[in-house]
Design a protein around this nucleic acid. Sequence first.
DNA 1: AAGTTTTTTAATCAAATGATTAAATTTAAT
DNA 2: ATTAAATTTAATCATTTGATTAAAAAACTT
Lengths: 243, 243
Amino acid sequence: MAKANRPSRGSRPSVPKKRPAPRKRPTPQKRRATGKAPSAAADLSTEEKIMQAAKKLFTQNGFAATRTRDIAKEAGINLALLNYYFRSKEKLFDIVMTENFRQFIRGISFQLLDDATSVQEKIQRIVTAYIDFLNNNPDLPIFIINEIRGNTSKVAQQIQEEVAPIRAHMFRQLQEAGRQGEITPIDPFHFMANLIGLTVFPFIGRPILQRVTGVNDQQFRAFMEERKNLVPIWINAIMHSKK
Amino acid sequence: MAKANRPSRGSRPSVPKKRPAPRKRPTPQKRRATGKAPSAAADLSTEEKIMQAAKKLFTQNGFAATRTRDIAKEAGINLALLNYYFRSKEKLFDIVMTENFRQFIRGISFQLLDDATSVQEKIQRIVTAYIDFLNNNPDLPIFIINEIRGNTSKVAQQIQEEVAPIRAHMFRQLQEAGRQGEITPIDPFHFMANLIGLTVFPFIGRPILQRVTGVNDQQFRAFMEERKNLVPIWINAIMHSKK
DNA sequence: AAGTTTTTTAATCAAATGATTAAATTTAAT
DNA sequence: ATTAAATTTAATCATTTGATTAAAAAACTT
């Protein structure tokens, strides 16, 4: 849920009496794992552990519903240390959010840029890459969508910049293909809506979809494997359909 | 933002010292609007006003990020009255949630059941009805998706029951059409994923989609109007594509 | 006007939560 | 061994927030 919509809580009076000198994060140093294994991955730097835990919980529950105490527990460290490293929940969230988002966008952008490969081939690759990626990060799309709306600040800009060149490139390639009669001309908006809709949506709507169609988890995975082949065919069919 | 994931807060000890006799909600009575108009719709019953406000905020922000005080303010009443009517945030949420969900499902179910209309015609109707509906309730899909995951209790069952007959019916009709060679046989899962993906997803992914494609709000609406015609064509193309 | 119901006001609770602090403790580097 | 850094412990703050209460005020019914 939107971070922006959440009133700051537990925040100090805006002018702190004596703000402690903004400590920089301790430079992480390698250490042997402590005697009692704290949690899962014990041999990561503390900073990493916290970020991983934060990513997991934020992604799963969103900003408002995630407790810093839970993040600390998940990371196998304590609350004090979390705040020592990241100063605040917001800061930690921003970092995780940015990284999450980068990963998500990269899934498309990486493939789309090079000129050599045909549209067909690109679609094929994107769909496969995305389905693989989302199998490992099923909560990411919902997280992105949730935390992006209403958030006009940094993130919006970030998207613009990161995506601008790709968009331009794709526009051209689609237009080209349309002009040459390879495909029925299609607006890039529809193209993207279709591509993402057919590929990413099943992960977003998964709980509903499964219940509505009576499909279990194993079957869902199988269907998504099928879609790696089917979606490109369908996109192709769409782009050759006549109005 | 799963409600279930949120630790109960501000809850009283499980055995209250002297639980006030569970007041039933005051039977709503019609009254003239008070002198000072509280908010927007002043001539609704108080119960209605609260529910509308709750629906708006819950849908917009999710459970965890919504404050009961904000609901009260939005409804133009005070916090005490909200609790007087609905006892707790959870209760209020459940009511809103159920209603929201019903509305959402009805969008499909209503159309799908009658036997007379062809698959083609049904698709046409569903797409149009859904796009119209979502134009007026753009936040609903994300809300549904958010509040449904992890929630195995009431809601899940509700879906099962409400959807079961429709599913059965659709299965049959699709199978029939496939056997008669009208369409390339397609699994109901893929069919649903495609139909909802192409129709509902643009509303879910709207913020990303607009930024990625550089489309403004007005254009978005225009595109969705276009899709009323295009999606059925595309679905048709998909169902006639050969592997 | 009298009586009932609905709503407001204002104060207050208890718990959750984000954050901070100081002192102890552990770990690693020198 | 000494030293510095990293981490834990435990206590504590300040707020937010869901919820309750009692009494006053307003609105409505009869």
